[in-house]
C-alpha cells in the first residue's frame, strides 16, 4: 500500500476533526448536566424564598455555594480538568459575583425590577462568552436566554415578573442542558 503525503495529510486532518468533535461532545454532555443542575437550583430557590424567610435574607448565597460545589464535583475527572482549572472556575464565579455586586449594590442603584433581570443576564452573558471557546451552543443559549429575560423585563406585568424571570432562566438552563446532552 502506498500513501502519498497529500493523502496522509488528509487522513490526519480527518482524525483531528473527529477527535475535536468527540472532545466537544464530552464538554457539551458534562456542561449539560451542570446546566440542568443550576436550572433545578433556580426553581428550588424560588420555591424556598417564600417558604423559608432565611432564604430571602441572603440565604441564596448558601444555594449558590451548593451549586458551585456541585459544579466542581461534576467537573472533577473531566479531561484536562486539574486542580488549577478548579481554582480558575472558583475565581470566575468570584469575578462574576464581584462585578455583579459592585454594579447592583455599590454603583448601580437599580430598582427591584432591574435587579431581578440584571443577575440572570450577567451570567447569560458569561455563557455567550464561553461559546467563543467551547462551541456555538453556549453562544445561542446565552444570547437566547438573555433576549428572553430582556423581553420579560420590558413586557411582563409586575405581579408575576419574578416568577417569569425564574422560569425563563431555569427553563433555558434545563432545555439547554437537555439539548447539550444530546448534541
Amino acid at each position: 500500500m502506498t500513501i502519498d503525503p497529500q493523502q496522509a495529510s488528509a487522513m490526519l486532518a480527518d482524525v483531528d476533526s473527529v477527535v475535536a468533535r468527540v472532545k466537544q461532545s464530552r464538554i457539551y454532555r458534562r456542561s449539560g448536566d451542570i446546566f440542568i443542575m443550576w436550572g433545578a437550583l433556580h426553581v428550588l430557590r424560588h420555591v424556598l424564598f417564600p417558604l423559608l424567610p432565611i432564604f430571602a435574607q441572603g440565604g441564596w448565597v448558601l444555594l449558590d455555594l451548593v451549586g458551585i460545589a456541585a459544579t466542581l464535583l461534576m467537573l472533577r475527572g473531566a479531561q484536562g480538568f486539574g486542580q488549577r482549572s478548579g481554582w480558575r472556575w472558583i475565581a470566575l464565579y468570584i469575578l462574576f459575583y464581584g462585578f455583579g455586586y459592585v454594579w447592583s449594590d455599590v454603583i448601580g442603584g437599580m430598582r427591584e425590577r432591574q435587579l431581578i433581570a440584571f443577575w440572570p443576564t450577567l451570567f447569560q452573558f458569561g455563557y455567550a462568552v464561553a461559546g467563543l471557546w467551547f462551541g456555538w451552543a453556549f453562544l445561542v443559549i446565552g444570547l437566547g436566554a438573555a433576549g428572553a429575560t430582556v423581553g420579560a423585563y420590558l413586557l411582563w406585568p409586575s405581579e408575576s415578573y419574578g416568577l417569569a424571570i425564574t422560569l425563563i432562566n431555569a427553563g433555558a438552563l434545563v432545555a439547554a442542558g437537555l439539548w447539550m446532552r444530546r448534541a
Binding site: 500500500m1 500513501i3 487522513m11 480527518d14 482524525v15 473527529v18 477527535v19 468533535r21 468527540v22 472532545k23 464530552r26 479531561q79
Partner: peptide, 23 residues
Amino acid sequence: DAADEIIHQPVRLRIMAALTALP
C-alpha cells in the same frame, strides 16, 4: 514503515480516532 491495513480504511480510521480520543 507500513500502514496498518485494518485501521487504514477511512471509516475504521474515524472509528479508531473517536474511540482513542476518550480516556
